[in-house]
């Protein structure tokens, strides 16, 4: 059991990293990764939303959608509903706890709603037949993976500020290339765990 949970977390953070292997959530990944400080904040907020979504998705799948046979066609609608509400909640909490972080997030906080990682996690849970604990860990792992990606990227980008980037590649171009290289590096984790 514990071994499986460990596999799930390693899989979702490293091997099947949502940003680098599944190429989901690229908008916030490129948008909020210019400073490590905001990257950490964004990662935390997304991790929170992801974990909550995973739990909520499990309950909705098993207690509402499956018993009534609604799963085939109401899955996406109901998950989106849950995600939107959760993001609203996080927005309120962040505004209350740290207005500075709220300002730093800017447009990206509401964008968690449309972060496809969140919907992907919700949709993958029924597909993989995870139980409650596995679902939670899966959501947490996805969030940690996203945070890891953000922090790696922001670290590189902060250093790149001082680097001698060719004129033609300045701005988004070099960021995309970096993201692509990072994704290739993460290919190296393939086969690390049997999942």
């Amino acid at each position: 059991m514990l071994k499986e949970l460990f596999f799930i977390i390693v899989s979702s953070v490293l091997v099947n990293n949502f940003v680098f292997s599944r190429f989901l959530g690229n908008c916030p990944f490129l948008g909020v990764s210019s400073k490590t400080e905001t990257a950490v904040g964004m990662g935390m907020a997304t991790t929170f939303v992801l974990t909550m979504t995973a739990v909520a998705a499990y309950f909705i799948q098993h207690y509402i959608l499956m018993p009534f046979g609604l799963a085939p066609f109401l899955q996406i609608v109901s998950f989106i509903l849950v995600i939107a509400s959760l993001v609203q909640l996080v927005e309120m909490v962040v505004l209350k706890i740290s207005p500075a972080l709220y300002n730093a997030f800017g447009i990206y906080l509401p964008l968690i709603t449309t972060n496809c990682i969140v919907l992907a996690v919700a949709l993958l849970i029924p597909l993989k037949n995870y139980n409650l604990i596995e679902s939670t860990i899966f959501g947490l792992g996805a969030g940690l993976g996203f945070t890891l990606a953000l922090i790696l990227m922001s670290g590189i980008r902060e250093d790149m500020e001082f680097g001698d980037v060719p004129d033609a590649l300045k701005g988004p171009a070099i960021v995309f290339i970096t993201a692509g290289l990072l994704a290739m590096i993460f290919l190296g984790f393939a086969g690390l765990v049997p999942l």
Partner: peptide
Amino acid sequence: LISTLSMAGLGFILGGGL
């Protein structure tokens, strides 16, 4: 009916929570 009710209920609960 079931799908309408369940979605409405879900929306209602989440909205109330918010």
